[in-house]
Structure formats: structure tokens, C-alpha cells
Design a protein around this nucleic acid. Structure first.
Lengths: 133, 133
DNA sequence: TCTTGACCTGGAGTTTACTCCAGGGTATAA
DNA sequence: TTATACCCTGGAGTAAACTCCAGGTCAAGA
């Protein structure tokens, strides 16, 4: 698969795909004789994984470390798991912080709705007065 | 309240508090004759609000706009509400993306646990063989 | 009076994650 | 065979949100 196809498939700019590779997130993308990338199925799975993780905000550095450990083999299983557990915990905290903010916004929005209705009523009242005077 | 007290109370660096002010998030912090900031109760409420919103990832620019509208008065109620609704929606999407990633990590972590247990068993097996030979 | 610590400003520097660009090679359709 | 579209690299540029620093003011305690 060529880079433009991967880009389209996962909706990631080609520059970003090259950047991820340079950063060490895609260590195994094969290049043909004239230097053009040819993404394998496995490369694509990694792209999809990276997209998901980046979408949740995991740092590129963390993904780089994880992926490097992955390609070191079985001896790194425990360390890889530790990374995932730690990042999972951070995501839970982030999700909860976001949820609290959503709840707070919900409340504020409902207050705004009340205020806006009230103000509209007042404006109608005023315009009636204007017409009457 | 002096800046260092606000900093301690909300766990926000003094430099960040000054930065927020410069960015327009705290338009009303009073300064005494010698130019030293004195945060009012109301300023503190804004600091707390900003901390919550920034913690969920709302951009400084958006907060700046919201706060500017707030100080313009009642005529901006609808516009302010629209900002909150729009940001709320983005947070919901973000929360859901994070939740999906958490779920995915949970699955991966459970797979890792299985693999690690399996590998430990094999290692014990090998060491038994070693002892026997 | 002197020193210490907290405060001030304007502006430069840092970090993260892209994003863009110049300059150049390659393949393929007309 | 020539134009067009796509690919490459290395490196510079950008955006957001801080974070740090130099150089200076000011109040209070020894």
C-alpha cells in the first residue's frame, strides 16, 4: 500500500505518517528499489493503533518506547504491560476530569437557558410598553 | 489575596497566573499603588473556573472569548451559551474517544497478563529441565 | 541601614506535535 | 518523450501553552 492510500484510509496526512516513522513509531515500513514506501498489513495495523492512541492523547514518546519494546520481543512483556497500565490510569483521570467539566457545562448551559428566556420575556415586555407609549 | 497565595490555593504556578492575565482570562485583577496584584473573591472564582476548563483542554483562546463576552454584559448571553454548547460537544467526543482507548487498553492488558503467566510457566518448566539435566 | 524575599515587566526560550517547503527522483499516460 | 502526478529527504516553520530569566521595585525584619 502506498503512503497516499494509507493516508486516505486512516485520514492521516502523509507528512504525519512520515513524521511517525521518523519518530520511531513505524520501524518496519519497507521501501522498494526506488525508495518508495510500501505499507504491509502489519504496518497498517500499527498505523491504526497509533491513530487510536494519539487520538486519546498518548504522547508520541510513550508510543515510541512501547513499540521499540514490542520489537525487542517477549522479554519486554512486563515492561510493555506496565506502560499500558500507567497510560490507562492517566486516561481514566483525564476522562473523569472531562466528565466533571461536562457536568459543570451542563449546569451552566441550563442557567443560561433560564437567563435567556427571562431576558426575552423582558424584552417583549419592553417592546409592548414602547408600542403602548 | 496575593499571587503566591492564589498559586498555592489552586496549584497553578505564578507565571501561569500572570500568563492567563496577559492572555485576557483575568481582566479585572486589581493592583495596589506599588503595582502588586490583589486577587478578589471573584478573581479567585475565575481562576478556579479557568483551571477546570483548562484541565479538560478548552483552549485559552476560547476562554478568552467567553470571558470577554461575559464582561460585555447581558447582550452576549446567547453567544456565550453557544460557546459552552459547542465546547461541551467537543468534550463529549473527546471523552468517548478516551473511553474507547481505555477499553482497548483493558483488553490488551488482559492479553498481556495471559502471555506473562504463560511465559512464566514456560520459564519454570525450562528451569526444572535445567535442574534435571 | 542593609539585606532578604516577594513582587513586577517585557521578552526570550521550551516542549510537543505536527506541517510545510525546496530540491530532486520516478512512473505512466498521451 | 514529455508532461503530470506522486514519491523522496532534510530541515525549517508553526501553534499552543506555558516557563524561565534579567533587571528592577518595594516592604519588613536584624
Amino acid at each position: 500500500m502506498k503512503i497516499s492510500e494509507v493516508s486516505k484510509k486512516y485520514d492521516i496526512p502523509v507528512d504525519t505518517l512520515r513524521y511517525y516513522e521518523k519518530a520511531g513509531l513505524l520501524p518496519n515500513v519497507h521501501k522498494n528499489a526506488s525508495g518508495i514506501r510500501d505499507y504491509s498489513e502489519s504496518d497498517c495495523s500499527w498505523v491504526e493503533f497509533i491513530k487510536c492512541m494519539r487520538g486519546a492523547g498518548l504522547p508520541v514518546e510513550v508510543l515510541k518506547k512501547y513499540i521499540a519494546l514490542f520489537f525487542e520481543g517477549e522479554s519486554t512483556l512486563a515492561e510493555r504491560k506496565a506502560i499500558l497500565v500507567s497510560e490507562r490510569q492517566k486516561l481514566v483521570e483525564k476522562r473523569d476530569a472531562i466528565q466533571e467539566t461536562i457536568d459543570r457545562l451542563d449546569y451552566k448551559i441550563s442557567v443560561y437557558e433560564d437567563k435567556i428566556v427571562k431576558r426575552e420575556k423582558e424584552l417583549i415586555g419592553n417592546s409592548k410598553n414602547e408600542n403602548a407609549s
